[in-house]
Design a protein around this nucleic acid. Sequence first.
DNA 1: CAGAAACTGTACTGTTTTAGTCCTGTTTGT
DNA 2: ACAAACAGGACTAAAACAGTACAGTTTCTG
Lengths: 156, 156
Amino acid sequence: MLKVNKLTDYAVVVLCDLLRGDRLRSAADLATSSGVPLPTVSKILKQLARTGILQSARGVNGGYGFARPPAGISMAEVIEALEGPIAVTGCVEESGECCEFVHQCPMSGHWNAVNVAIRKSLDEVRLIDMLPEARFMDPEDLTRVIAERHAAAMQA
Amino acid sequence: MLKVNKLTDYAVVVLCDLLRGDRLRSAADLATSSGVPLPTVSKILKQLARTGILQSARGVNGGYGFARPPAGISMAEVIEALEGPIAVTGCVEESGECCEFVHQCPMSGHWNAVNVAIRKSLDEVRLIDMLPEARFMDPEDLTRVIAERHAAAMQA
DNA sequence: CAGAAACTGTACTGTTTTAGTCCTGTTTGT
DNA sequence: ACAAACAGGACTAAAACAGTACAGTTTCTG
Ligand code: FES
Ligand code: FES
């Protein structure tokens, strides 16, 4: 089924919510407005901050915001942030975790073509394409609107 | 990690083995030559026959062979045969299994862009590209060699 | 016609992964 | 000092998977 993690699924919901605002949002705030339970939202946001997609501020009035212009974030990045490198099987040239017969193993490296193809296609889907309004808006307008919101958030 | 089923992984090994021969091969035969345990090979072949990628013959001298020219088989087909439709989340326009708030659910349909992108990229990787020799051979030569073997198998 | 070689379908079980939760600690603004 | 937020990690119940087994059906061969 080539399923994505449920956490990744929620992450997109939460990120879309974050795309709609123009300031730092707390985990509790995002949980309320997205409907995803707080502990889960918290887990997601922590991970996204760790991998550099979001930035966080502690203390009173703290919260999360995008660490860089959201229009430049691809789905490949989001998925990799929550699930680690995209690799459809354990036996991939980069990951060391192959079987014990690496030298003569008949499937060594076979899946690379598939990994590369998937990776490439995910690079080309942007996070902001996941917004429902993306379907009705001109892509350039969408990019501009999102960029404005992000600028406002950075200023605040 | 966007992992593929282990069964699917083995399936490629077994299918590659089948690509190398020019006649019907029994499950036991393929198990021996691929190193994958017989019950597992059997499970895979049954499923591939059910979905129309392979054809089977019962009885003495029976076995499995490709149901159609192998050069035309894509990885998307192989993956779908063993794991069902490619859908990274439960909430996809075709599959009915969404949450109970379909009407106002904020993530309804979001992942379609990703599904389509992945599906398309998998359509473009052929099964025969997974053969190790595919890396050193001219694609046209490869296609021809495989077609000849298939013709021989059909005749036998 | 008997028996062996193959495929077919399904059911079972131990293991692994995932999802979701909770707790304890650290930072920061008032 | 205190409360609001984030950080990191540990824990558990539930779901999915992998692998196996078995009883049934078809077909060839002698
Ligand atoms: S599975 Fe990776 S080398 Fe065998
Ligand atoms: S998850 Fe599919 S409609 Fe809500």
